[in-house]
Design a protein around this nucleic acid. Structure first.
Length: 271
DNA sequence: TGCCAGGCTTCAC
DNA sequence: GTGAAGCATGGC
């Protein structure tokens, strides 16, 4: 069981970042996450040490890239203009945030569901969906339900999907599942596509517009230039940047910067 | 109790 | 291309 000293990662902020919906903290400093067909427990110890409840090999091969642990984010922040007070405050508030490398399918469905829902409601829908259609699994970190496969959701009755509080999005999820299960949309081969091609493929799905596509690109394909604009980001752009963001020099890592802004904007509202 | 939520589709213009 | 209405449901 790997016990590692980590710098530049804050799992509490990741849990609260709105990019991942199956991560929770049942007691202070203890995190669980259901992702990529696994359940992981992470325990924080003093002095930046974390215990990952999994084999060493899995930590290196799966979770290091998943949490992007080997990347130094200070590199992404060098483009920030010194006079951009708002962004500097946002970055300082969200320091040690990470952009995860989530499973594209789970990310796609999660963000289709996310439209016009708040985060607790999204989490609830995803848990209902997993319980009803996901495979029940046993792990050293407890029993859980894996995220449903495309086939499982493609074969589901629309009324059963609706029972997971999907609302009008039931049809969107069903169509996306049928498209992936039927091979018309190959999410794996899209890993090799550039951002423009990827966005075209995603927005070709019913119920996937600009915003959801950008979330899938950023959180499922690690396209750091993808810039999702939701109601929170829209408000900040309008009130802090006169309606125009990101500037050209920010565009390469706009998705990373966006994540700090999203986290900061929500944090400030909650105060 | 009303407003809002990590929006999208449709339709008018 | 832009703008507004309608959409199911639940959290706060």
């Amino acid at each position: 069981m790997p016990e590692v000293k980590l710098h530049g990662v804050d799992f509490k902020k990741i849990k609260d970042s709105g990019q991942v919906f199956r991560m929770w903290e049942p007691e202070d400093g203890v995190f669980y996450i259901n992702a990529i067909g696994r359940r992981l427990k992470i325990e924080s110890k003093p002095h930046g040490v974390y215990v990952f409840h999994c084999p060493d090999e899995e930590y290196k091969r799966i979770w290091t890239p998943y949490f992007d642990l080997d990347t130094d984010y200070s590199h992404y922040l060098k483009c920030i203009r010194p006079e951009d007070d708002y962004l500097l405050r946002a970055v300082s508030c969200g320091l040690d945030m990470k952009i995860l490398r989530q499973d594209p399918w789970e990310t796609l469905v999660s963000f289709i569901i996310s439209q016009r829902k708040n985060i607790p409601a999204i989490q609830k829908s995803i848990e209902l969906l997993s319980k009803r259609f996901g495979e029940r699994k046993d792990s050293e970190n407890g029993e859980y339900y894996a995220f449903p496969t495309p086939e499982a959701l493609a074969n589901a009755a629309l009324t059963d999907l609706r029972a997971c509080s999907l609302g009008y999005r039931d049809e969107y999820v069903h169509l996306a599942a049928r498209s992936v299960a039927g091979g018309e949309l190959n999410l794996e081969s899209l890993r090799f596509a550039d951002s423009a091609e990827l966005k075209d493929a995603l927005t070709g799905l019913r119920g996937v517009g600009e915003k959801v596509a950008n979330c899938v690109m950023l959180f499922g394909y690690h396209k750091l230039d993808a810039f999702p604009v939701d109601t929170w980001i829209r408000r900040v752009i309008d009130t802090e940047y006169g309606g125009d963001f990101p500037p050209e020099s920010y565009k390469r890592y706009a998705g990373v910067l966006q994540q700090y802004i999203f986290y900061y904007a929500r944090k400030m509202k909650g105060r």
